[in-house]
């Protein structure tokens, strides 16, 4: 079977995120939570998903605390489930769309190559910058600079920020050279893959949009 066109994948991703975004009814929210967690296990994404929870949980926890103080515990719980669903579904969507597919989809939609390239390169450089941050942190801690998350250590974080900024600028320069030597500035770029919307793409797109419309209608009573 022909793999889905990147544009179809993008549309499915947008439909999922929109559905999560507009869900407000407790039944919808908990159903979505169930579907997302099931998808994590069905598609064997539990290891990267639980790793990403390190970032998601503190954010959700903070929102719970603020909304509990501002409103009540029940509203805070619903708000947190909604936020969790939004972050977790975005995580899942981006696990299924490779940056190159995203780029190809956007280019086919006539988005300028410069913008598309910037977007995909930013995704590619996330792990690289994570490694860079870790190596700077370790180098500074090794010479006695305390970088644990404590109020008294705030001024010490300059020891991380300085080398990180400087090395980021150097990396940006080197990246610019690397792009040039691979023909970034040339006109008339071609596509490696011939992206064409097939019959299955149209069926899936119509089904996804239809499902979204039904869900919005059920959710809002429109």
């Amino acid at each position: 079977m022909k793999p889905l066109d990147p544009r179809t994948k993008l549309l499915i991703g947008m439909v999922i995120i929109t559905a999560v975004f507009i869900a407000g009814h407790p039944v919808s929210l908990f159903c979505q939570l169930g579907i997302i967690l099931s998808a994590v296990f069905i598609f064997k994404m539990s290891v990267p998903f639980f790793r990403s929870l390190k970032l998601i949980i503190p954010m959700v926890g903070l929102v719970f605390l603020i909304s509990w103080i501002s409103f009540d515990r029940y509203s805070a719980l619903l708000l947190c489930v909604r936020l969790f669903n939004l972050l977790a579904s975005s995580f899942l969507v981006f696990q299924f769309i490779r940056p190159e597919d995203l780029a190809a989809g956007l280019r086919k939609m006539k988005i300028p190559f410069g913008f598309v390239f910037m977007l995909t390169t930013a995704v590619r450089f996330v792990p690289l910058m994570q490694n860079k941050i870790r190596s700077i942190r370790e180098a500074q801690m090794s010479r006695g600079i305390d970088l644990r998350l404590k109020l008294k250590n705030v001024k010490n974080f300059m020891a991380m920020l300085g080398p990180l900024l400087l090395q980021s600028f150097v990396l940006a320069d080197e990246l610019a050279v690397a792009m040039e030597v691979r023909g970034y500035g040339r006109k008339n770029r071609s596509f490696r893959k011939d992206y064409r919307l097939g019959f299955s793409d149209y069926i899936i797109m119509v089904a996804a949009v239809g499902a979204l419309v039904i869900f919005i209608r059920w959710e809002t009573g429109w």
């Binding site: 940056p99 190159e100 023909g183 596509f191």
Partner: peptide
């Protein structure tokens, strides 16, 4: 600067 080696090779060829 691409997400896999295959795409690295394809980048320059697409430029050509």
């Amino acid at each position: 600067f691409n997400s896999c080696v295959e795409d690295e090779l394809a980048f320059g060829l697409e430029s050509l």
